[in-house]
C-alpha cells in the first residue's frame, strides 16, 4: 500500500509566474511520456513480473514516479497561481482556463487528455521491460526539450533532477532485463506458458 510523506522528493520554489512554461510542463503530468503514464505502467506491470528483483524494481520505480507526478503538478500550480487571466490567455492557456481555471488536470502540452493508450502492460516480462526502457528514454528527451524551453533556474533545476532520474531508471530496468533474460533463459522455455489445450 502507499504511505504519503508530506514533503517533495526535490524542492520546488518558483518565484516568477510563467504560464507559458506551465503549458509545456503539464505534458509531464498528463502527456504520453509523462509521470502519470510511467507510474501506471510500472505499477500495473508489477503484477505479472517475474523474479523478486524485477518485481521490486517495478514496484519502487512506479512509486517514485508518483513523487515525480507530484513535482510536476506543483510546478504547474506555482507557475500559474499568480498569473492574471490575461497573462494565462496570452500564454495560450485560454482554452485550458475555460475548462479548469488554474487547476491541474492531466493533459499533454497540446491539450489532449490523458489516456491509458500511453502505456502498455503486455504480460510478457521481457516485452514489458523493453517498453519501460523506451519510456524512460522518451521521458528523458522530453525533459531535455523542456529544459531548452525554460530560462528560470527555479524551473530548470527540478527539470534537470527529473531528467537524471530517467537515466538512472533506464539503468535499473536494463539490469532487471538482464536478470529476467537469464531467469527465463535458464528455464529453457520457448514460450511463457502452455497453450490452453494442454493445461
Amino acid at each position: 500500500m502507499w504511505i504519503y510523506e508530506k514533503k517533495l522528493e526535490y524542492p520546488i520554489k518558483i518565484k516568477n509566474p510563467n504560464p507559458r512554461m506551465a503549458k509545456y510542463i503539464i505534458s509531464q503530468y498528463g502527456g504520453p511520456d509523462g509521470e502519470l503514464a510511467a507510474s501506471l505502467r510500472y505499477l500495473s506491470q508489477r503484477f505479472s513480473m517475474v523474479t523478486p528483483q524485477a518485481q521490486a524494481t517495478l514496484n519502487d520505480i512506479g512509486t517514485e514516479e508518483l513523487a515525480h507526478l507530484e513535482m510536476i503538478g506543483t510546478m504547474v500550480k506555482q507557475l500559474t497561481e499568480k498569473a492574471s487571466v490575461e497573462e494565462l490567455e496570452r500564454a495560450g492557456l485560454g482554452a485550458y482556463f475555460t475548462d479548469h481555471d488554474r487547476a491541474v488536470y492531466p493533459v499533454s502540452a497540446s491539450g489532449t487528455p490523458f489516456t491509458a493508450a500511453y502505456l502498455q502492460s503486455k504480460g510478457d516480462p521481457i516485452t514489458d521491460l523493453y517498453e519501460n526502457m523506451a519510456a524512460e528514454q522518451k521521458a528523458r528527451s522530453t525533459y531535455e526539450y523542456l529544459i531548452q524551453l525554460a530560462d528560470d533556474p527555479d524551473v530548470i533545476d527540478p527539470l534537470r533532477f527529473l531528467r537524471e532520474r530517467e537515466v538512472v531508471h533506464f539503468q535499473r530496468f536494463g539490469e532487471a532485463l538482464r536478470l529476467v533474460q537469464d531467469y527465463l533463459g535458464d528455464r529453457k522455455r520457448v514460450s511463457m506458458r502452455m497453450p490452453d489445450k494442454k493445461r
Partner: peptide, 9 residues
C-alpha cells in the same frame, strides 16, 4: 543536486 548518488550515472 545531481539527481543520483552514483557519479558514473
Amino acid at each position: 543536486k545531481a539527481g543520483t548518488i552514483f557519479p558514473e550515472l
